[in-house]
Design a protein around this nucleic acid. Structure first.
Lengths: 208, 208
DNA sequence: GTCTATATGCGGATAGAC
DNA sequence: GTCTATCCGCATATAGAC
């Protein structure tokens, strides 16, 4: 088949998948077109048939990562009890950020132009917003969601960079979660059922 | 003076100072030996007379940044009232992180080998630890310090990367600070003077 | 003490052959 | 559709001249 000396065997989906892998195992700034191409057994210029330039690929990678997060977060958000839902979501969020930090970091800190704004990223935010609002009893409690989100992001990041040192965080995670749960609860109607599970489900765990 | 055709006009201090400037205005990964040398009117190889390789310069830069932070934080830590002290420290921390994000980010996320471990960085941590412990009434309350530190770092970072979107954080900062203050207070003796200033002093401000 | 010249390595992107 | 070849830029670091 001489006419197929260069048969098509690339696709946008394959490139995207490989690129996500490069970020996960090559570090947040480990995404290079040469490396992606090499992993696919082709040369870098070939990728330009599918992505006009790197930025477009980066936006697609970020979106894909947010979709990965979304899949796990949705499962965690299924609990009926508001407080359990928020605790499980926080647990899952932290687990993703810890175990797949390069992916997490790439998505959250991707400062891409507005035109690449992420649908999945917004969906993740909405899950957090609803979960926090569910505990506080205030609809669209942005302040509550921003507060606990900041805490989770900061904890995961400082932990990743080894800032807590040899002594470790020493219960700082549980302390923070309890502080927010208590604060959110106090925004809700003062009389509630005594359903207040401990924070013991939030521990360092590995993804399966 | 033919024997001084290449007179000395570099010093470790000058190089360090310039390097810190490059990070502040050139971005977290904007530290290149070429750029530093160019700003000093020399060529890159000249720097090797003062720093054996880049990593040593990076460690010096991180230490210098922590010292800058330390200077501001010490001033904020002078209040006699524990709660005011923690609020002012949090305010100052956030202001530094916001207004000089590249510097802040470089120092906090510098993952340098253990042998470069920062004295000033530890001093910053100790200020936070003492301030948080002062409010909670528990000596060396690591959990409390870790919790509020995570929150401040996360908030500053998410804000910097524009993650809160057009709607903005909508009081998420004040909400978080209050949640922690309340939590810390409850660890202390239950009866306290009614000295509970509002969180209104924590606002976006520019450094002078 | 600083220089030029150079080695080696990375990266994105394009033109034009096959 | 993929290739080779190339241009451009960036970087750290070293050898040896002045």
């Amino acid at each position: 088949m001489l006419t197929m000396a260069y048969p098509k065997h690339l696709s946008s989906a394959d490139i995207l998948k490989t690129a996500v892998n490069m970020v996960e195992y090559g570090g947040t700034d480990g995404l290079s077109l040469r490396a992606v191409a090499s992993a696919l057994g082709v040369k870098a210029p070939s990728l330009y048939r599918y992505f006009p330039h790197k930025e477009v690929l980066e936006a697609a990678v970020a979106e894909e990562i947010f979709n990965l997060m979304l899949g796990e977060f949705r499962a965690a958000s299924e609990s009926a009890d508001p407080e359990t839902r928020l605790r499980r979501l926080a647990d899952t969020y932290l687990r993703f950020a810890r175990d797949r930090f390069p992916l997490y970091s790439f998505a959250v800190q991707s400062r891409l132009p507005e035109k690449y704004s992420s649908k999945a990223g917004k969906a993740v935010w909405n899950l957090l917003l609803e979960a926090a609002s569910g505990v506080s009893g205030q609809p669209d409690d942005t302040a509550a969601a921003v507060a606990i989100w900041s805490f989770l992001h900061g904890y995961a990041t400082l932990e990743h960079f080894g800032v807590f040192g040899a002594s470790g965080p020493k219960g700082g995670l549980e302390r923070g979660v309890e502080a927010f749960m208590s604060n959110f609860r106090s925004s809700a109607e003062p009389v509630r059922k005594e359903h207040r599970p401990r924070a013991t489900d939030i521990r360092r765990q590995k993804l399966p």
